[in-house]
């Protein structure tokens, strides 16, 4: 039997790594938290069931390609729009877990008393949420694409459309994560954060088709098109449409031109500004 000796306090003289390391560690830590890794089994249920739901259409698409030798049900460019409810639920359920606990339990001062700065902290959180949403959309897309290549359908594979949709998935992920985090950072209560993000999404997804329909029926066709830009998924689809010439995945056409892209950039900047203001206030407490 070995005996345990009290060897007293030992000093640490190993390496102390720089900002790159801490920001990366915080990003990975937050990303793991979003998927409930290293947490209780209960916190894994929501993210993993949503990931499974996202993968189902990919599996069905591959099965159809293999059996009927026909392109899958869902086009690459329309995947995010068609699956938008699932992506939105993921955002609403998981964005508050990224920011709310540190604010509610006042852990933030412990970060700030270390070399981590407030902008590095917020940057790492945004990066983690963006990565999670990107994986949520891009993994099923990639699966379908790999399936398409392996099954070897007649005609060329939709490589251009696939890469375009993956790029747009990243833009969508950044837009959604900045907005989701900005909304959920305003309330330190997680439940309230979930409800607020969900309400914001439902408002934009339910109201937009109604506004579009009303305007179109009243004969304001060209004005009606702008309505789609009020929902983040259709907004990003509109950008994709004007960048890559893909068809609209809404029930009507989008306004063309650079406006949708400008709007995306402006919205991301606005959400970042809200985050910056929110955290500047939180830091001075």
């Amino acid at each position: 039997m070995s005996e345990i000796y009290d060897i007293g306090y030992r000093h640490y003289d190993g390496p102390r790594l720089g900002r790159g390391h801490t920001v990366r560690a915080l990003t990975v830590h937050s990303l793991r938290g979003i998927f409930g890794l290293g947490r209780t089994a209960r916190s894994k249920i929501m993210p993993f069931s949503l990931v499974t739901i996202m993968l189902l259409p990919a599996v069905v698409s591959i099965a159809m390609m293999a059996l009927v030798k026909q392109p899958g049900l869902i086009p690459y460019s329309g995947f995010a729009v068609i699956m938008q409810a699932v992506v939105a639920i993921f955002l609403a359920a998981q964005a508050p877990t990224v920011v709310a606990p540190d604010l509610r339990f006042r852990v933030l001062p412990l970060y700030l008393s270390r070399p981590v700065t407030i902008s590095e902290y917020v940057g790492a959180k945004v990066a983690a949420m963006t990565m999670a949403l990107f994986l949520l959309v891009a993994v099923p897309l990639t699966l379908i694409y790999v399936g398409e290549l392996l099954i070897d359908l007649p005609g060329p594979p939709g490589t251009g459309e696939f890469f375009g949709s993956v790029a747009m998935a990243l833009v969508l992920a950044l837009l959604l994560s900045t907005f989701g985090l900005a909304i959920s950072s305003l309330t330190p209560r997680r439940g309230l954060g979930v409800a607020s993000v969900m309400a914001a999404y439902l408002l934009s997804s339910a109201a937009v088709p109604v506004i579009y329909g009303t305007l179109e029926m009243s004969g304001y066709d060209s004005q009606a098109r702008w309505a789609w830009l009020a929902n983040p998924f259709w907004l990003v689809d509109a950008v994709q449409s004007s960048l890559f010439g893909t068809p609209s995945h809404a029930e009507g056409p989008y306004p063309g031109g650079p406006i949708p892209a400008v709007l995306v950039v402006a919205l991301i900047a606005a959400a970042m500004a809200v985050l910056a203001l929110r955290y500047r206030k939180a830091a001075s407490r």
Partner: peptide
């Protein structure tokens, strides 16, 4: 720095929490 107020999240273990903050101080 040890603040005066509560600053601990309830749903993680002390080990996980302290390891994470050590990494935030730059330790591998």
């Amino acid at each position: 720095y040890m603040p005066e107020h509560d600053c601990l999240p309830p749903d993680v273990s002390a080990t996980e929490f302290v390891v994470h903050l050590a990494r935030m101080s730059g330790l591998p």
